[in-house]
Design a protein around this nucleic acid. Sequence first.
DNA 1: TTTACATATTGACAATTTCCGAAATGTATG
DNA 2: CATACATTTCGGAAATTGTCAATATGTAAA
Lengths: 106, 106
Amino acid sequence: MDIDMVEISKALSNETRLNIIKWLKDPEGNFPPQGGCLSEPVDLKGGVCVSSIQAKANLSPSTVSNYLDTLQRAGLLLSERHGKWTYYRRNEAVIQELAEYIKNEL
Amino acid sequence: MDIDMVEISKALSNETRLNIIKWLKDPEGNFPPQGGCLSEPVDLKGGVCVSSIQAKANLSPSTVSNYLDTLQRAGLLLSERHGKWTYYRRNEAVIQELAEYIKNEL
DNA sequence: TTTACATATTGACAATTTCCGAAATGTATG
DNA sequence: CATACATTTCGGAAATTGTCAATATGTAAA
């Protein structure tokens, strides 16, 4: 898996998208408990649903959905759907790869 | 000295600007010998003048000058004027700070 | 000091990005 | 099935960025 630096940089060049990534570093600290009304308990792995992120970002749902998509296409986030909700979480591997890339290749 | 992640990301979110940073990693390998017709020899510290970069980037002088300014304002490059020429070189400290920031804070 | 050259700045226009509301798509529940 | 809700997609107005040619500035050489 290689780093698309332009794509990633574009994804990071927006205050709100940057905040989303940082907020997801501490999901319990930054968002209400997730998992809502799911009947079967699933492992959300620290994922947070779009509406929780939207509430914190204070932007329209469509904008936040777009931002999350941008971050995911850049590889920085992972998403998983459970019922009505899509849970987004950090892709730590890619974030560390990015740090390594900048340290050694940039 | 703190990292303005949005500013830096914007600077890096362009193929040519990214290339300029990479080219400057190996100035001797990527550019003709610098120092040109300077009477007094000065230490260019690996700096490369705008016209050498412009020739390699194959964009207009004004565009390249702008790009270099963008990279410098983001802190990624340093510039030094000697005679008619402005020599740009990487700011390795900031680049390493950026890598650390992504590794630990992002 | 006149000229030539390296670089920077300005003004313009096209292309892209931001961000929203409206509409569409999934999915669970009554 | 009909409804409600979470999310995504679409279409567009406003803001930003990419890029150039033209102009300005700074410096060295004639």
